[in-house]
């Protein structure tokens, strides 16, 4: 169980190894708090969808698996969006359509249609928890890098007299603006992937890819 939970952190990290779930990583990693929020949302949706899929799989025919999986994920994503709009309107405006787009997140579909279909609900729960947490950590890391370099600030939750924004001396006056633009998202992701490949050379696996 511990191995199921922890395998996602380094050697099977969904983001750094397989580049699954690229959409939120590229689009909403400009601010640390946004990256954290979307990662946490995905973690919750992932746990619900994977556990439900592996519990329901004996009762639904195989050709409806994709349909049922996306319907479960879409319900969770809609709930998340409504809750976010009710309690955190500012955050909801910044995340925009990326919360409903978590429905077709590649990480979610890969875990729910790949792993959860072949395992029991308990194992799928731990797998979803581990994968979601490691994705969250990777996303927060990328959000931190992009925000520090791109705007020279670190945005956290405002509490008491603390405004929620840490200014980094030097960088906040003349940040590398490119990194917080869409072009910077691709560049940073490319360089990080290369660095990760040096640290952990990719093992030739038999993982089937969606090649047409």
């Amino acid at each position: 169980m511990l191995q199921t939970f922890s395998k996602g952190f380094v050697q099977e990290n969904p983001l750094c190894v397989h580049l699954l779930g690229l959409c939120p990583v590229l689009a909403v990693s400009v601010r640390l708090i946004d990256a954290f929020a979307i990662g946490l949302t995905l973690l919750v949706i992932l746990i619900i969808t994977c556990t439900a899929m592996s519990a329901l799989k004996p009762h639904i025919p195989g050709r409806f698996h994709v349909f049922i999986c996306t319907v479960i994920a879409a319900s969770c994503a809609s709930c998340a969006e409504l809750l976010m709009r009710a309690y955190m309107p500012g955050l909801s405006d910044r995340l925009g359509i990326f919360v409903p787009l978590l429905t077709v997140n590649a990480l979610l579909l890969d875990r729910a249609l790949g792993f959860a279909r072949e395992n029991t609900p308990g194992v799928s729960f731990w797998d979803a928890l581990g994968m979601g947490t490691s994705f969250l950590l990777a996303l927060v890391g990328i959000g931190l890098i992009r925000e520090v370099l791109g705007s020279g600030t670190i945005t956290l939750v405002p509490a008491g007299s603390f405004s929620g924004v840490i200014m980094i001396p030097g960088l906040s006056r003349s940040p590398i603006r490119l990194i917080s633009l869409p072009a910077g998202a691709f560049l940073i992701m490319g360089y990080l992937k290369a660095v990760f490949d040096i640290a952990h050379p990719p093992v030739k696996t038999t993982r089937k890819e969606n090649k047409p």
């Binding site: 580049l19 779930g21 690229l22 959409c23 077709v104 072009a183």
Partner: peptide, 9 residues
């Protein structure tokens, strides 16, 4: 390229 609605495939 500018809305970044893109996945791994």
């Amino acid at each position: 390229l500018s809305q970044l609605i893109v996945e791994q495939p």
